[in-house]
Amino acid sequence: MAEPQSENGRILVLDDDARIRQMLSRYFEDEGYHVTSVGDGNGLRVSLQAATFDIVLLDLMLPGGEDGLSLAREIRASSDIPIIMLTGRDDVVDKIVGLEVGADDYIAKPFHLREVLARVKTVLRRRRPQNPSPPPAASEEVLRFEGWTLDPGRRQLTMADGTAVDLTTGEFDMLLVLARQPGRVFTREMLMELTRARNWEAFDRTIDSQIARLRRKIEPDARRPSLIKSVRGVGYVFTGKRSE
């Protein structure tokens, strides 16, 4: 039997509480979404391999040794799928850590279903393209800096020894925008617009999280960045030296 199609999107819910899974599934299905719900990390992995989703609602506190933060890191290592963290603790530290590992938003339990719906719509609205740009031509200039090679045509970043570094789509686009114009200071708003070309609402943490993940992959010391530097109160600037 063919899987039902949804006009609004596909949601993957991970929560160890069956009542919450059922509540979210019923509510979002009534709102026109297709929902898949699972109770642990293994179910999450199987579902992500079996189907494509528009957003993940991910519980922070899970039994069995895995938690939402580790699963968010795992998802973000290979995918830009939006993630909203759900948690029973309204801890500022947990919230910041969740956003830094790649979550797009954070909702504390108990929550109102209408609030969750509003957050989902906002995140999806930021993510969906309005006027998508065409993919870069294969002949587009290859950028070289500090031993790195950034190839827009192949969408590949390689180290000096030729080893390829895995970047998500968002990380690659962020690095490409910055590396094309070394020395230029970009505000978060400019980076959001240039890397996503989407209808969005100001969400500085999205950019900060993306930069933090990118630094961990390309900087010799992510705590003392030498390629992508912060400009206090403004945004970021690429300071790597270009080479031919």
Rank of each mutant, 00 (worst) to 15 (best):
F238K: 12
M190H: 08
G64N: 05
L178T: 08
E115F: 06
A197L: 13
L194M: 15
L143S: 07
A108T: 15
L117E: 00
M1T: 04
R19M: 08
F203T: 15
E244V: 01
G9V: 07
P220Y: 01
L214H: 13
F186H: 14
S79W: 00
M1W: 00
A72K: 01
L86G: 02
R224I: 04
I81H: 00
L69P: 04
R216S: 13
P110Q: 04
R125E: 10
V93Q: 09
E29Q: 15
R73N: 11
G65E: 02
A197H: 15
A18H: 05
A18N: 04
I81V: 15
V38G: 07
R119A: 03
R205F: 07
P136A: 14
E244R: 02
T149Y: 00
T195F: 05
A179G: 09
L143M: 04
A179L: 10
G183D: 06
L86P: 04
T158Q: 14
E74I: 08
I75R: 05
V116N: 06
S226A: 13
L44C: 09
F28R: 09
M85C: 03
V120I: 15
D221K: 03
V177S: 04
I75D: 03
R76N: 05
M85S: 03
D91I: 02
P4C: 05
G9H: 09
R76Q: 10
A103S: 15
V234W: 08
P134F: 09
Y236N: 06
E189V: 01
D80H: 12
S47Q: 11
E31Y: 03
Y33N: 05
G162L: 10
M159K: 15
R205M: 10
E140T: 15
R216H: 09
R223F: 10
V35P: 01
K95R: 15
T187H: 10
E193G: 13
V92Y: 06
F186K: 01
R126Q: 07
G102L: 07
Y27P: 12
V234G: 08
F203Y: 01
A118I: 03
V13M: 03
P82M: 01
T239E: 14
E3R: 05
Y106L: 02
D16P: 05
S230Q: 12
Q5F: 00
P152D: 00
P135R: 15
V92G: 06
P135W: 03
D91E: 11
G39A: 14
D67C: 01
Q130W: 12
G102F: 11
T87M: 00
M23Q: 01
A103W: 05
P82E: 00
I211D: 01
R19N: 12
R198L: 02
Q5C: 01
M190T: 14
V56F: 08
P225D: 09
V231H: 11
S243L: 09
D59V: 07
F145N: 02
E100K: 06
V120G: 03
S226Y: 02
G162S: 10
E201G: 06
D94W: 05
A179R: 11
L86S: 00
V56L: 10
F28H: 09
A164F: 03
R198E: 12
A18Q: 08
L71M: 07
G68D: 09
R10F: 02
L57T: 07
D94N: 04
S243K: 12
T195A: 12
P134H: 12
E193M: 10
R73Q: 14
